[in-house]
């Protein structure tokens, strides 16, 4: 299987081939190719030890251990937690950011980062907002959290009303 993985702003093509034997069935050959430098491909053979919500990989050549907690999230997103660092990965090009991201068109979709209640809308359709300006206040876990615009723009759509309960990922407003 070959997939494209984007993580931390880097893109890799990863090819996996099962090379296990009866004695050691979970051995996989992994070819990791940075998409910005295809000649720098790295080939590794690793033991794969699956655990609940994660896996431990042991490199057969240098015995290095990768201990990763991996959680599937909606829309091709994965949360990969290595010791000391949490990373978001997307697999196979479904790279459209779920929230806050500034798409190529200059559109920002402000979405609910967690389930909660829309406490206050701080802007109206047609308002001009500055980068970093608070646009909506969500109440969750007993705290008020102000969500901000990532970049300057004009509010094109408000998709919720004050007092409304929202699920994580729900579109709140759109800024162009």
């Amino acid at each position: 299987m070959t997939v494209d993985v984007e993580v931390g702003g880097r893109a890799f093509r990863v090819s996996l081939t099962r090379v296990g034997t009866a004695d050691a069935p979970d051995v996989v050959r992994i070819v990791l190719q940075p998409l910005d430098d295809p000649d720098a491909a790295d080939t590794r053979t690793m033991h794969v030890e699956p655990r609940a919500h994660g896996l431990t990989l042991i490199d057969t050549s240098d015995d290095r251990v990768i201990d990763a907690a991996v959680l599937a999230r909606p829309h091709g997103h994965w949360l990969v937690q290595l010791p000391g660092v949490d990373l978001s990965a997307t697999i196979d090009g479904r790279r459209r950011r779920e929230s806050g991201g500034t798409a190529a068109s200059g559109e920002q979709r402000i979405t609910a980062p967690m389930p909660g209640r829309v406490l206050r809308l701080l802007v109206a359709v047609g308002d001009t907002v500055a980068a970093g300006q608070a646009v909506v206040v969500i109440e969750a876990m007993k705290m008020e959290n102000a969500l901000t615009a990532e970049a300057a723009g004009v509010v094109r759509e408000i998709a919720v009303e004050e007092g409304m309960s929202v699920e994580a990922g729900r579109l709140l407003l759109r800024i162009e």
């Binding site: 299987m1 997939v3 993985v5 993580v7 931390g8 880097r10 890799f12 990863v14 996996l16 996989v28 992994i30 990791l32 790295d42 590794r44 690793m46 794969v48 699956p50 994660g54 896996l55 990989l57 990768i66 990763a68 991996v70 599937a72 994965w78 990969v80 290595l82 660092v85 990373l87 990965a89 697999i91």
Partner: peptide, 16 residues
């Protein structure tokens, strides 16, 4: 860490 994460995500997706 980025490379390790890419490998881990790919292996997890493959197994899923």
């Amino acid at each position: 860490q980025l490379r390790d994460a890419a490998i881990a995500a790919a292996v997890a997706a493959w197994r899923a």
